[in-house]
Amino acid sequence: MALPLDTVKKVAGLARLQLTDTEIEMFSQQLGGILDYVAMLDELDTSAVEPMVHAIELTNVLRDDVLAPSLPRADALQNAPKQDGRYFLVPAILEG
């Protein structure tokens, strides 16, 4: 069952993905198909099963509070699409 176009648009908004109308139509069909497929999981009663987040379940991995060298500023900024040698630059963030 196709995913409603409005849902596709809403999800694209959440994911900050600009989609063409063709893509919206295509994803509506394809995601609908995938969701129909994954519905097979509903066959299983998992009420007594703990979710498994990690493949190997470790606990208590911590590091000591010890300084490590930071990157030189030029390296930190080197891949930025727009920067002024001190800051990353972005289009004005409107606050009000």
Partner: peptide, 11 residues
């Protein structure tokens, strides 16, 4: 979807 999949993962 997500939590369900994590549970089946354990199975």
């Amino acid at each position: 979807y997500y939590v369900k999949a994590l549970k089946v993962r354990r199975l």
